[in-house]
Design a protein around this nucleic acid. Sequence first.
DNA 1: TTGACAAGTAAACAAGCGTCTACTAACTCT
DNA 2: AGAGTTAGTAGACGCTTGTTTACTTGTCAA
Lengths: 182, 182
Amino acid sequence: MTRDREATSRRILEAARDLFAAHGYDQVTMRMIAAEAGANVALVNRYFGTKAALFAEALATGSTIESVIAGDPAGLAGRLAHRLAVRLQSGATEPVTRMVDRAGTSPEIQAILHAHVEATIIKRIAAQLDGPHPEQRALLAATMILGTGSVRRLFGPGVIEAVDAEEVEARLKAMFEICLRP
Amino acid sequence: MTRDREATSRRILEAARDLFAAHGYDQVTMRMIAAEAGANVALVNRYFGTKAALFAEALATGSTIESVIAGDPAGLAGRLAHRLAVRLQSGATEPVTRMVDRAGTSPEIQAILHAHVEATIIKRIAAQLDGPHPEQRALLAATMILGTGSVRRLFGPGVIEAVDAEEVEARLKAMFEICLRP
DNA sequence: TTGACAAGTAAACAAGCGTCTACTAACTCT
DNA sequence: AGAGTTAGTAGACGCTTGTTTACTTGTCAA
């Protein structure tokens, strides 16, 4: 066994991210994470402190939703709509996004999640908007983003597979335009 | 102590509903429920079987969202928008609705939740709609309803208190009209 | 009044959890 | 080559969980 702290801690972080995304915070144990990473349980605590801290670090891994938000403000509604339509259809979704949906209900986790959503979604969308109360409108957009996650979690991927995906995307786009416009 | 099975089991059910709504499925223990109901822990299992079964029964207690959906289909978007706007402002929310938001991530609970949302939200909204794919449009409405729950859970009640609540309600109404119309 | 049934109780069960401590073994530097 | 640092390990600790078992107590019919 080669000894490489950096590689090991990275494997732990990735294992944590994937498992939290797949099964939710409460369902994942430290021992599961260690096993998935091929590491010892004690190392998880040694490198990341507590389970909640590990969750927070995994959340900070970075999400591609940020790149969807960035870009031409005029096309923001369309990009978000496309992203959500894909999420409702496709089985493969980005880990960090799923972590948010399946996060637990403990106060500590809620606080971590709150900060993450505020920083990566609300603030960044609000920064793209003109007119009064940009954060209020960004909050409505977040409602749709988080709602899509809930629906996907409950109904499973491919829930709109059988029906017209393009129509859904068009509706989502119109809804985003309403909630984002000044 | 008067011995009354019916009253005791009702107290347990109400305690479970309120605690699940307040803290989420995973954070609530059987002992907490028993204490809140002023009953013995063993009775909770005796009367309701398992924790998950108790959760399911508490969920079936009935929600006022059903009465919001029922009524004149023409005013459905407005009624839903009003309901959600109130939910984003007010501290007091109906227990069953909060149970849905704060439910756990275990497969068993997900299945219970899936059935509940499908029966009380999707089906009932779809029944009000004309045109093709009513369930697809009901699913988009459910996205907003569930999304509001997530936002409220993360950001706390009163998140839009400081800003213009009427404007938010108007936006929500327009968004619902788009996702519900044929 | 007594006996039987049901409501309620106390205590333990077995399992699982996150976390920590004491130890081993590999790598590095002089 | 040997000492010191550090990655990695094994195992236990203490606690909490949902659930069950064995027991006690109140209630009501005969």
